[in-house]
């Protein structure tokens, strides 16, 4: 029997995972210790040890930690959703927005805010604090899923090809986006702020409720990925090839699509449409993993969490009290990264 040579050429992939895990811990730590409110290190340490002043406790436990956890989970969602979509559509530019998920969520949140304000308080301008913000994640997620389902149904009626999915997604996404923008434009001023905040992707005032909203989806999504890893490998091929290797293509394509839409829609609901994470993180992970494709998923998960946590930290620190929303940070940092990645690929 001839031994099959191991895939040993690429050592980068192997060492990058612990390094990234370290980096993740570092960003998490920094995010706890650095922020707009000036807390001394000893204050923070004592909070972490279970004591500390009530003020420090509330800043760390009720503001910073839930924000970090929510951001990290959302980052994982966007990155993994992007990875799945890029894999199954064989389109390196795919991200959750091509399934219309972000746009569907945007429209549903817009409609929801519009109607809830209108129904609650007809005639007057409701104050932002009275808005039913606790519903936004669920509403956004449902909107995102409906848009994803519409794209799926349109593409499914003919053949469920990757190109058709992409085109349907772009078309439906554009329509939904236009409607949402139209509604926002024709609408009063006071409430726009909440919406803009959400639209630009923000971690401001994210509470444990947001983290708890996301966590079940994160766990279910990642667990569901494990048994379909080989199917995802095969979905990288054209349908006839995947089929002749023995994969029921349509079922697995649909399931993977459903999984990525669920991950993306729940994250969009919780933190708004944060752009570029779903697009870029999978490319970074691929560059680091090289031929060690089994590392692709763990690297994507780690990098997804790092990207949002560090992006949020930068946004908080750069402008102090007037935070720059995370969505703006990822967009600004994402473009040079994308260009750099494009330059190094042959």
């Amino acid at each position: 029997m001839t031994p099959v040579p191991g895939i040993a050429r690429n050592r980068r992939g192997l060492s990058s995972l612990p390094a990234l895990a370290g980096l993740l811990l570092l960003t998490l730590g920094l995010s706890v210790f650095l922020g707009v409110a000036d807390l001394s290190v000893s204050d923070i340490m004592s909070v972490l040890a279970g004591n500390g002043s009530p003020e420090a406790q509330s800043i760390i436990l009720d503001i910073r930690l839930p924000r970090i956890v929510t951001g990290g989970l959302a980052g994982i969602h966007f990155a993994v959703a992007g990875l799945i979509l890029q894999t199954i559509t064989r389109n390196p530019l795919a991200d959750p927005s091509i399934m219309g998920v972000s746009q569907g969520a945007t429209l549903s949140v817009t409609l929801f805010l519009l109607f809830s304000v209108f129904l609650r308080d007809p005639g007057t301008t409701a104050r932002i604090t009275e808005m039913p913000l606790e519903w936004l994640p669920a509403v956004g997620m449902v909107g995102g899923l409906i848009a994803g389902a519409a794209v799926y149904a349109l593409a499914f009626r003919r053949d469920l090809g990757p190109l058709r999915i992409t085109l349907c997604g772009i078309a439906i996404g554009a329509v939904l986006h236009a409607i949402a923008i139209g509604l926002i434009a024709g609408w009063g001023s006071a409430r726009i702020e909440v919406l803009l905040e959400w639209l630009s992707g923000s971690l401001y005032a994210r509470s444990w409720e947001h983290a708890l909203f996301l966590a079940p989806f994160t766990i279910a999504g990642l667990l569901a990925l494990l048994p379909i890893r080989r199917a995802l490998d095969l979905l990288q091929f054209e349908a006839p090839v995947a089929r002749s290797f023995g994969l029921p293509y349509r079922q697995h394509f649909s399931f993977a699509l459903f999984l990525s839409c669920g991950l993306a829609a729940s994250a969009v609901g919780a933190v708004g449409p944060i752009v570029f994470v779903g697009l870029i993180v999978p490319h970074l992970a691929r560059a680091l993993a090289g031929a060690k494709t089994q590392l692709l998923l763990p690297l994507t998960v780690t990098l997804g969490a790092i990207t949002i946590t560090s992006g949020d930290l930068i946004g908080r620190l750069v402008s102090q009290a007037d935070e720059i929303p995370i969505g703006a940070v990822t967009a600004v940092c994402g473009v040079p990264l994308l260009i750099a990645l494009l330059r190094r690929t042959p």
């Binding site: 080989r230 091929f237 054209e238 006839p240 090839v241 002749s244 090289g290 031929a291």
Partner: peptide, 26 residues
């Protein structure tokens, strides 16, 4: 197939491994 295409990063061994999917399954 007459002119199959494979994902960019896939190695020869990884491609040949896909041939075993029918036997090992998910």
């Amino acid at each position: 197939p007459q002119q199959p295409t494979a994902p960019d990063e896939m190695t020869v061994a990884q491609l040949v491994r896909q041939g075993r999917f029918a036997h090992v399954g998910l």
